[in-house]
């Protein structure tokens, strides 16, 4: 597609897109894993990387490589759920508050601001502790989504407020367009780069939160994610005992994931920025 071709000219996009594709392949490989990730002792423990076990084994007798495929998959699932659900909430709240104004705006912004000033981390920790048994991937994703929409709702709302004053709003009204359709068709294209970059940032934040919760021991330790892998490695003293393959795998994967997500968000939002988009439109 022409869009992809244009995007690839940006080295940041090319790099991050490739990395993410690789990580996605890694995640998909988990479907072919010969080992069940929740079982222990299917291999000799603490083996160095070799041809039979590409990244060695950990102290629980699991193959690190195949664990990692599951870890990447699960972390991505959590972050995608968190990111998309929180976007949907942020868009709805931001657009309704921005266009309606007055009382609706005040109420929605009050709610949103409350979420902003709450000590999110503590509350998430508290809730995580309470529902630890029921904490599967989806629930964790939803929990993070519930706390990740407030900032972006306000940003989207400001965007809508300024767009409302522009003349093409009047043109659309005079063309007979109803409110919802107006907001969707006229304003959304302006908000898209915002939404996209915050989506990706939100995903990165979700992964970070997931890792943090895991290290605190608050998530379900049986489900392999980047965080839980790291947590097991730490609790088994992998650093002191020199089992670098077990420790470094989740760390390196997480670093790649963060950098890739960041560069992806920056390059795409630059591409989608209305100002450069308008320039490009004429040069077609």
């Amino acid at each position: 597609m022409r869009v992809l071709r244009d995007l690839f000219k940006d080295y940041r996009f090319a790099f991050s897109f490739t990395i993410l594709c690789l990580l996605l392949i890694l995640a998909l490989l988990s479907a072919f894993s010969p080992y069940d990730p929740t079982f222990w002792w299917h291999a000799t423990r603490d083996l160095r990387p070799s041809w039979t076990h590409f990244l060695g084994t950990n102290s629980k007798g699991q193959d690190v490589f195949w664990q990692a495929t599951y870890a990447v998959r699960n972390s991505l699932i959590i972050s995608v759920i968190a990111g998309t659900v929180s976007r949907v909430i942020a868009i709805l709240v931001g657009m309704i508050a921005g266009y309606r104004g007055r009382l609706t705006d005040r109420v929605l912004m009050f709610v949103s601001d409350s979420f902003l000033v709450m000590p999110l981390f503590l509350i998430i920790v508290l809730l995580a502790m309470l529902v630890r048994e029921h904490m599967n991937l989806v629930n964790l994703g939803l929990l993070l989504a519930f706390f990740g929409w407030a900032w972006d709702a306000r940003v989207i709302r400001s965007q809508i407020l300024s767009l409302r004053e522009r003349e093409f709003t009047q043109t659309a009204i005079l063309s007979g367009t109803k409110t919802m359709r107006l907001v969707m068709k006229e304003y959304l294209p302006f908000a898209t780069p915002l939404i996209f970059s915050t989506l990706i940032n939100n995903m990165a934040w979700a992964i970070g939160m997931e890792i943090t919760l895991a290290i605190l021991g608050l998530s379900n330790m049986d489900i392999p994610t980047l965080g839980t892998m790291l947590q097991w490695a730490i609790s088994y003293q992998a650093l002191l005992l020199g089992w670098w393959w077990w420790l470094l795998t989740p760390i390196v994967l997480a670093i790649f994931l963060f950098v890739a997500l960041y560069w992806l968000s920056v390059s795409i939002s630059e591409y989608l920025d209305p100002r450069t988009r308008i320039q490009r439109v004429g040069a077609r």
Binding site: D6, K9, Y271, T276, Q279, R280, A283
Partner: peptide
């Protein structure tokens, strides 16, 4: 001007 590869 240079916007995404097209020079103007």
């Amino acid at each position: 001007l240079d916007a995404f590869g097209t020079e103007k």
